[in-house]
Every structure is written in structure tokens, then in C-alpha cells.
Simulated assay, not measured.
Amino acid sequence: MTAGVRQLLGLVVASVSFLCSVIICALPQWRVTKNQDSRINYIREFSEGLWKFCETYSLNLVHCLRYESPYASITQDLEVARVLIVIAIIVGFTGILLGVAGSKFINFVPDEMKRSKMAMASGVVLFIAGLFVLIPVCWTTSTISVNFDNHLSPDSSGSPDSSGSPDFSGFPGSPGTLKSELGASVYIGWITSGLWFLGGGLLCSSFLCRDGTD
């Protein structure tokens, strides 16, 4: 595989990684919690994202609150994830631009050696973007076993508690039965970090085989 083909594949993979990073940043599906009352066949689902908290009822009615609301608070892992994912998007986009500038298909830099070094630098930047995605994904995965009511606690008074947690009054069943699960964003995040690493590896390897094929 020639260096030019490696660069092209690396940039395509990096572009897909960038789109996936934007998706997991916006999608409120990092942590999902369900509770079902079998007596009345009632299901209530709570999903936490980086920017908002959503509640879904049995009839697919969705109500979302931003974390700035006094009725919803963000956990520490998701607060850190918000920062790291935004950084990953910025860093990844910078890496893509650097890769395009150093690509063999665009004569932005006339010197061949400089273009190869830019491709190498682009690969390293993409690796860094992958780490920024991998860290919050791993952290959120490790906290799934933590009891959900550490974040959401019932408040019989009908008002948010001192931590800003949503009101659970009227919730069918015991809050102790709530079980947190990985959301779609975490699964996509695992794939996204792998794609960032793959794209970075292709661009770095294009520097090593710049004079020919494998």
C-alpha cells in the first residue's frame, strides 16, 4: 500500500471519527437507567448525556432538562467527559486539517519531506484525540456499577434537593431497584477512540513508507 493511499484512508477514517465524536457529544445516552413496575406495566427510563438529562415514559414521551436547570445535576465523570470530548473534537479537527495540508493529493506544501512530516504530525495529533475520547469512555464505564441514586435521590417535598437532583416523587417502585446501564454514546465512544487510533496509525505509517510500498 503506497503512502498516498495510506494518507487517504487515514483521513477518511479520521473524518468518520470526527463525526462520531460530535454524535457522542450531543447524544444524551451516556448512561441509561430503567425502572419497570410489573403491577401496572409501567416503564420509565432516564438517560444522561453531557449536556442534558432526559426522561422517557412508556408512551415514548420524552422530557429533557439541561444541567443548568435547578432540577438536574451532572455527575463528575460526565462533567469531565464533556470537557475531554470537546477537546477531542477540536484536536481531531486540527489533526485532520494538518493531514489534508500534508497530503500528497494537495500541493499545499511543495516540499515532499515537509508534507511527510506533516502527515506524521497529523497522525500523532489523531492519537491524542483518541486518548481524549478513550479516557471519559473508560471512566463512565467503570462508574456504571455505582448506585444510580447517588445522583438522583427521591424528594418527597416535590422540589430539588441541595445537590440539584431531579425530583423523583411519584416514581413507581422503589428507587433502590434502579439499575444503570451503558448508553449508546459509550458504545459509540469505544468505536470512535479505535477509529481515531486507526486513522492516526495510517497517517503515521505513511511517513514510514513514503518512498514506496510495503
Rank of each mutant, 00 (worst) to 15 (best):
Met120Ala: 07
Gly123Glu: 02
Val109Lys: 11
Thr94Ala: 15
Met113Asn: 06
Leu97Ser: 03
Asp111Phe: 15
Gly95Phe: 09
Gly99Ser: 09
Ile85Tyr: 15
Pro110Ile: 00
Met118Arg: 02
Met113Pro: 00
Lys104Met: 06
Val109Asn: 10
Met118Ser: 03
Glu112Trp: 08
Ile89Gln: 08
Val124Cys: 10
Glu112Leu: 13
Val100Met: 07
Ile106Arg: 09
Phe108Asn: 03
Thr94Glu: 02
Phe108Tyr: 13
Ile89Glu: 08
Ile90Gln: 10
Ala119Pro: 01
Phe105Trp: 12
Ser103Lys: 05
Ala101Pro: 00
Ile85His: 12
Gly92Asn: 09
Val124Tyr: 02
Ser116Gln: 07
Met120His: 10
Gly99Asp: 06
Thr94Asn: 01
Val109Ala: 14
Pro110Trp: 09
Ala119Met: 14
Phe105Thr: 06
Ile89Leu: 12
Met118Lys: 02
Val100His: 03
Met113Ile: 00
Ile89Ser: 07
Ile85Ala: 09
Ala119Tyr: 00
Pro110Tyr: 05
Thr94Asp: 04
Val125Met: 07
Phe93Gln: 05
Val109Cys: 14
Gly99Lys: 03
Val124Gln: 11
Ile90Asp: 10
Ser103Pro: 04
Glu112Tyr: 13
Asn107Asp: 15
Phe93Met: 11
Val86Ser: 14
Val109Asp: 11
Leu97Met: 14
Ile89Cys: 11
Gly92Leu: 11
Phe108Ala: 13
Ala121Ser: 13
Ile87Gly: 12
Lys117Ile: 09
Lys104Ser: 12
Val125Glu: 04
Glu112Gln: 01
Ser103Leu: 01
Gly102Ala: 04
Gly123Trp: 07
Val100Asn: 02
Gly92Phe: 09
Met113Phe: 10
Lys117Asp: 08
Gly95Asn: 05
Gly102Pro: 01
Lys114Gln: 12
Thr94Arg: 04
Ile89Trp: 13
Val91Tyr: 13
Gly95Glu: 12
Met113Lys: 05
Met120Gly: 08
Ile87Ala: 15
Lys114Glu: 08
Val124Asn: 07
Val91Asp: 11
Val125Lys: 01
Asp111Thr: 07
Gly99Val: 01
